[in-house]
Simulated assay, not measured.
Amino acid sequence: MTITTAVLITGTSSGIGRATAERLARRPDLAVYATARHVETLDDLARAGARILPLDVTDEASMRAAVDVVEAAHGAVGVLINNAGYGTYGTIEETDLDAVRTQFETNVFGLARMTQLVLPGMRAAGVGRIVNVGSMGGRLVFPVGGYYHASKYAVEALTDALRFEVAPFGVKVSLIEPGLIRTAFSAAVAGTLAKSATPSGPYAGLNASADQQMADGYGSDLLTASADAVAKVIEKAALAARPRARYLITPAAKFLVHTRQLLGSRVFDAYLRKQFRSDAAPLSLSPLKIYR
């Protein structure tokens, strides 16, 4: 990587994206472009050395404009970090499909379109990196998270196909799979879940149980990691000579993913039936009792 390498990061107003921009902006060999829909949220990143751009990954003109700015200054985007995303939770029956479509526009189609826009420049340069921020939720599924998990499973599939397709052009692709990370994500998810059904609806007990599990899991320092811990891994994926295809982050996430593979669907469903009960006692801090 040369001193002119441009790094374009989506979704840097908070959480993992912000921590990544802060970390990479310290490096003298990178020109870091931090983006968000509302650039006024990025003033501190500008002071830290990042270059600020408006970018909405659900808006074609906004995406094109951001990529054009970077390419005009550097010739090509050297590293694209597709971080923008959020979670809409609720049961399959009750969740509003317009909200699901909006989630897919951000988590899947925005990621795909940003990738399409930067690839011609990367191919012409003969080098490039694309780092997609997915989730351990792209490797296993918990109730009331079906639509969110579906978006992250889609990111898994897109990343696997992309990694093979662009390798001959010198472009390397990695997938980041965080577990529970201490950000505003949990509060946002709990809010959408609470609104997904009426208190007297058929899934009220399940929703309440899931809310409690999220609160317990995200409230545990033992089971969570900081946003900077993820940013450190993203830095490695973006700059290592031989980046890995996948980076599964946090011990709890690794335990959950590998345990789910070992248990199989029938045993895992039996476990879930025990845990997601309206009369369930408060959960102890076990890795199998949290999700992202």
Results as ranks from 00 to 15, higher is better:
residue 289 K to Q: 15
residue 258 H to M: 11
residue 214 M to L: 15
residue 158 L to W: 07
residue 130 I to W: 00
residue 221 D to W: 10
residue 125 A to L: 08
residue 8 L to M: 12
residue 46 A to E: 15
residue 255 F to G: 04
residue 259 T to G: 00
residue 11 G to E: 04
residue 181 I to P: 03
residue 265 S to K: 13
residue 167 A to H: 14
residue 102 T to I: 09
residue 118 V to C: 03
residue 135 S to V: 12
residue 187 A to F: 08
residue 92 I to M: 13
residue 259 T to E: 03
residue 245 A to S: 11
residue 246 R to M: 01
residue 86 Y to F: 15
residue 15 G to W: 09
residue 16 I to Q: 00
residue 221 D to M: 11
residue 65 A to G: 06
residue 202 P to N: 11
residue 157 A to D: 06
residue 181 I to F: 12
residue 201 G to K: 04
residue 292 R to D: 10
residue 103 Q to P: 07
residue 238 A to R: 04
residue 101 R to Q: 14
residue 209 S to K: 01
residue 266 R to A: 15
residue 171 V to Q: 08
residue 77 V to C: 03
residue 34 A to Q: 05
residue 42 L to F: 05
residue 222 L to W: 09
residue 144 V to F: 12
residue 187 A to Q: 12
residue 36 A to V: 08
residue 28 P to V: 06
residue 185 F to N: 04
residue 136 M to W: 07
residue 190 A to V: 06
residue 42 L to Q: 04
residue 283 L to K: 12
residue 52 I to Q: 08
residue 36 A to S: 15
residue 244 R to N: 08
residue 98 D to T: 14
residue 91 T to C: 02
residue 171 V to Y: 02
residue 243 P to F: 00
residue 124 A to F: 11
residue 158 L to M: 14
residue 176 I to L: 04
residue 105 E to P: 04
residue 162 L to S: 04
residue 217 G to A: 06
residue 59 D to W: 07
residue 88 T to D: 03
residue 69 V to S: 07
residue 238 A to N: 00
residue 48 A to S: 11
residue 138 G to E: 04
residue 280 A to L: 05
residue 266 R to N: 13
residue 161 A to V: 14
residue 223 L to A: 02
residue 241 A to Q: 10
residue 142 F to M: 14
residue 30 L to D: 06
residue 103 Q to N: 09
residue 224 T to G: 01
residue 180 L to I: 14
residue 126 G to M: 05
residue 237 A to C: 01
residue 146 G to I: 10
residue 19 A to L: 06
residue 3 I to D: 15
residue 176 I to H: 01
residue 14 S to G: 03
residue 91 T to A: 10
residue 214 M to V: 12
